[in-house]
């Protein structure tokens, strides 16, 4: 207790010194999970890009970016930002909802502006601004595409992500969307949003099932592994694959009319950029900035692929 009080006092002192130098420089803290898979890598990229652009545009904005590899580390990151960097606003993409709710609530109670991205906290009304993708829509849009492609039903296999709420929401929505369509999920297994795991799972699906009409890979990284396994088994003509998230290589294939990749579904990692920009606007304009900002998942087909294609992004 004593220690943290001391640290607080110290931070206060530094803050005074800081604010005396630059009158109204505002500090925005950004806390996100580390780049452990493709989508998170893209998200990290967009966070860095946005911060770089905003720092150039606004002289009175400072950013503190930290990436965490587990929820515990993320909590420590946020505590450090409060104690030593005196942030005015926090943009957080929680690793997991439960463990981050308390710490983020304390940031809010300290009078800071809080933006929560992608994963909601487990209590409502903590954040000022909520920016998120729509996992239910992601599953539903994917399911509807299957329904449309397979009017007479068929046999499909599903690769799931890392066992989390996100994955559950997507899969449930997908299952609801295909209900009554005659489409049968003959096998479902976790590929953990990982290319290697997806490759091995798909290899085993191909050994196990003589007839597979389509694959819902549910993620573009997993789709890469799945495609490779299908190529190896020489069964490219028997099935097609739907990934998800909008990796540039996959969008390119959709754009080129690749038969095995007829479409993709967005879940843009760029949402972190949107969130940071909106938070910055709170301090640089007089616009009221609060509420919920949901970025829906869209279906990418050959017709509209071009507008989703960013060749420079790492993802």
């Amino acid at each position: 207790m004593k220690l943290s009080a001391l640290a607080g006092a110290l931070a206060l002192g530094i803050a005074f010194a800081g604010s005396a130098l630059a009158q109204d420089t505002k500090v925005i803290g950004v806390s996100i999970p580390a780049a452990t898979h493709g989508w998170a890598g893209g998200m990290n990229f967009h966070a860095q890009q946005t911060i770089k652009a905003l720092e150039e545009r606004y002289e009175n904005l400072d950013f503190v970016l930290s990436t965490a590899s587990d929820p515990g580390q993320q909590v420590s990151d946020i505590e450090d930002m409060m104690a030593t960097r005196n942030i005015d606003a926090l943009v957080v993409l929680p690793f997991e909802s439960e463990p981050l709710t308390g710490p983020v609530q304390r940031v809010k109670e300290a009078g800071k502006f809080v933006t929560v991205v992608d994963r909601g906290l487990s209590q409502e009304n903590i954040e000022d601004l909520y920016v998120a993708g729509d996992n239910t829509a992601f599953g539903r849009v994917s399911g509807e595409f299957f329904k449309q492609q397979m009017p007479n039903g068929g046999k499909i296999v599903v690769l799931r992500g890392i066992p989390t709420t996100i994955d559950n929401e997507r899969v449930e929505a997908f299952q609801q969307a295909i209900e009554g369509s005659g489409i049968e999920i003959i096998d479902m297994e976790h590929g953990n949003w990982n290319r290697d795991d997806a490759f091995e799972v798909m290899q085993d699906f191909l050994s196990k099932h003589a007839e597979i009409n389509a694959v819902w890979a549910s993620d573009d990284d997993m789709a890469v592994g799945v495609l490779e396994a299908i190529n190896q088994a020489n069964r490219q003509d028997q099935m097609w694959v739907l990934g998800g998230a909008g990796m540039k290589e996959m969008i390119k294939r959709v754009m080129d009319g690749d038969k095995i990749i007829p479409a993709d579904v967005t879940y843009p990692p760029a949402m972190i950029g949107t969130a940071i920009e909106l938070t910055a606007l709170r301090f640089t304009s007089s616009m009221p900035m609060s509420g919920r900002f949901i970025i829906s998942s869209e279906l990418i087909t050959k017709d509209n692929a071009e507008k989703f294609y960013y060749p420079d992004s790492p993802f």
Binding site: H37, F199, V224
Partner: peptide
């Protein structure tokens, strides 16, 4: 040569 890629999750 299997997947032709490497990332932090390899």
């Amino acid at each position: 040569p299997r997947l032709g890629s490497a990332s932090s999750s390899t």
